[in-house]
Design a protein around this nucleic acid. Structure first.
Length: 418
RNA sequence: GCGGGUGUAGCUCAAUUGGUUAGAGCGCCAGUUUGUGGUACUGGAGGUCGUGGGUUCGAUUCCCAUCACUCGCCCCA
């Protein structure tokens, strides 16, 4: 019985759902191309090391959420939990580090062993964009603008809020980290158990807490902006300037922190209130240290990933392009099936969407044509075949005419489909 | 991984203090209609009441376990 269920946290994408996914991917792909981002794909399988080194040894993704699928000797192979590290690995593997900048768009499934919830799956689907080799803040602006444009095209920009923050460069972040830890240690006893743990592992994450008691303590905490050096400050301001110039609305959220180790400077999240606690729909930041962490040259980078599954939850059915209603081919009975097939092929060759009806008498086949939401039924019976004509029926109005085969194209053109 | 809720037909939901043959709407199939669909009417199929165990003369109903979904936490897209 259980073998008939999908694996926990995985999901069949039935046509209706799949349509949303491909709509999102197509839209994103198109917008990304207009920014000069080239699509690429990396394997679903990577060596564990790729993520262990980059995401940070203590991040949840590495410590408990990775699917390890094969072990051969010392090889530890995992299903990729996210996209950026794999793309960065590919840049190095393929010796692409010589010519910068590089702009990549990608799409595909990621795997994380988490407790499933609405909008949180073990096989999740992401779109993503990465820009390598640009340390200028204009790169950050463009990358965010790309994300915003995609959300706009999807009709979701009104339903999300862009929040940004800066983590500063290494120097600033380390300084702040010390200040914060010093402050929080004084309040250690009153912190929530979760935050007490985070104090050792990832203290910046405490800023993001949902615990009310923690929030009160944080009100008196030192601010990251106070620890920013001049360079980091200027970088952040320039990005805001750029966003303003492009009329991309945003909110400053000094408590916004990214979970993965490789982030620095800008951190941004597009969030929605429509999906419960899984509110983050697209998020990213700058990761200047990523390449060196992987043992490569020092190449800056900035990028984001968006959750297709979450975006799909926000898309309403009627936001999608309408289905093309098919033409149904109706041979009156089996004797004319072959004639029907030939007609269907000819029409498909001209670019029409054509469905064959199988079996049954005229009434039954019309019923099926109706069920498949066909706009027109092309009927072929004894009389039609003998006179080399087809009976063309409009299933919405019920009108029908019998025309010579050669005039079908004309007739379809009159109906506005060609 | 932690805490709460839910699980009856393909879908949305009923089923009285535990009681014999588990119902409805929608959908599906067929007929009324052998060269005309949609509407209408008539009929039909479809359930091991998530799964396993326990209590009981008897369990969809009570108890335990388990699985899945779901809400919140953790984490993240």
């Amino acid at each position: 019985m259980t073998t008939l269920q999908p694996v926990r946290g995985t999901h069949d994408l039935l046509p209706l759902e799949h349509r949303k996914h491909s709509y999102i991917i197509d839209a994103a792909r198109k917008v990304a191309a207009s920014y000069g981002f080239l699509e690429m794909a990396t394997p679903l399988l990577e060596f564990k090391e790729v993520f262990k080194r980059t995401l940070g040894d203590v991040s949840d993704i590495v410590t408990k959420e990775m699917y390890e699928i094969v072990k051969r000797g010392d090889e530890e192979i995992v299903l990729r939990p996210e996209g950026t590290a794999g793309i960065a690995r590919a840049v190095m593997s393929n010796g692409l580090t010589q010519s910068m900048p590089l702009k990549f768009f990608y799409e595909g499934p990621m795997f994380r062993y988490e407790r499933p919830q609405k909008g949180r799956l073990r096989q999740l689907h992401q779109i993503g964009a990465e820009l390598f080799g640009v340390s200028d803040s204009m790169g950050d602006v463009e990358v965010i603008a790309l994300a915003f444009d995609i959300l706009k095209v999807l009709g979701l920009s009104q339903h999300v809020t862009l929040e940004i923050n800066t983590l500063g460069d290494d120097e600033s972040r380390k300084l702040y980290r010390d200040h914060l830890v010093a402050y929080l240690k004084d309040h250690h006893a009153s912190l929530s158990p979760d935050s007490q743990q985070r104090l050792d592992r990832n203290p910046l994450r405490i800023l993001d807490t949902k615990d009310e008691g923690d929030k009160k303590i944080l009100n008196g905490a030192p601010l990251l902006t106070e620890s920013l050096n001049a360079f980091s400050q200027e970088m952040f301001l320039k990005i805001q300037e750029g966003l303003n110039a492009l009329k991309i609305p945003f909110q400053l959220n000094p408590h916004l922190v990214r979970g993965l180790d490789y982030y620095c400077h800008i951190a941004f999240e597009f969030t929605t209130t429509e999906l419960g606690s899984q509110g983050t729909v697209l998020a990213g930041g700058r990761y200047d240290g990523l390449m060196t962490t992987m043992g490569g040259p020092s190449i800056p980078g900035v990028g984001w990933a968006g959750g297709i599954d979450r975006l799909a939850l926000m898309l309403s059915e009627d936001a999608l392009p309408p289905f093309i209603r098919p033409i149904a081919i109706i041979p009156m009975d089996e004797a004319f099936d072959i004639k029907g097939l030939e007609l269907a092929q000819a029409l498909r060759g001209q670019g029409h969407v054509v469905e064959m009806t199988y079996g049954g008498n005229l009434g039954k086949r019309l019923k099926k044509a109706n069920k498949m939401n066909a706009h027109y039924a092309f009927i072929l019976g004894e009389a039609e075949v003998a006179s080399h004509t087809v009976t063309l029926k409009d299933l919405d109005t019920g009108e029908q005419t019998q025309l010579p085969r050669e005039q079908i194209g004309e007739w379809l053109k009159d109906k506005g489909i060609s």
